[in-house]
Amino acid sequence: MQMQAPIAAKARRPWLLIVPALLFLIVFFVLPLVDNGLRSVAGDAGEWTGARYVTLLTDSFYLRVTFETVLLSAGVTLICVIIGYPVAYFLVRKAGRWAGVVVFLLIAPLLTSIIMRTFGWQVLFARRGLVNNLLVDQLGVISSPLRLTNSPEIAVAALVHVLVPFMVLAIATVLQSVDRRLEESAKILGAGRWRAFWEVTLPLSMDGIGTGAILVFMIANGSFVTLVLLGGGIQTLPLLIYQQFNTTRDFGMASAMSTILLVIAVFCLFLQLRLVRRQGA
């Protein structure tokens, strides 16, 4: 009887274990999104309508907002790659015994709330903030404080601040597995430092850049707390959904915009899976 235990464990349909999690997400994650999709095509009299999508894809205002959303995410992603790559390179190749400190400093900001970090940018650039104090009192460059908050540059800096650690960690993970000897062989064969980097190291770390870029782009696309508080006149889809919900209360339109955001997210997820699969192969 006792000896049957392992056999019994195999026979007792262990796949039942996944049912609660699967069922939960189907009901409370998939169904709301399907419901949302249906609302975006429901007309006032219960008929189907594609009018909202026609508006979203033809009206110049909405087209600009969609374009600005994608442009902002792409810009933030690009800045994260440019800033993040040297840091990841330093972490993997140069940091040595400082590597632990670098990783700690990268992860520590993730413990702070999004409100705290946004507030930090407001403090730095407020009327009586650090930057204005430096410019007016210490350096005397200007006579009265500048209105620095509410500029798109600060909103972009704040987004980069939130997202760049993900990029650094993604690149560092791949860079770690790049064989240093390949780089050294290139140098022995006469390639200069820069050529060895451009033609050997950088191409080999492309997968890390890809993984990080998709992740950063995805999060940037859905972010709205930073933009609500730091504004800067940037109009994005999440911000517009927030406003439509708050003020205009055009829920059908907000649903349609949600669906567009969702399609972009699913596309990113698809790219991410392809990249992961390629790395696994």
Binding site: P32, N36, F224, A254, S258
Partner: peptide, 26 residues
């Protein structure tokens, strides 16, 4: 199945929130 169970992390949270409000009310 694993990919599906992890997929909420890839979706914009504002969309999850907005869609859930209407669905849960229903």
């Amino acid at each position: 199945v694993m990919t599906f169970l992890l997929s909420p992390l890839s979706m914009p949270m504002i969309v999850i929130g907005f869609a859930s409000l209407f669905f849960l009310s229903r």
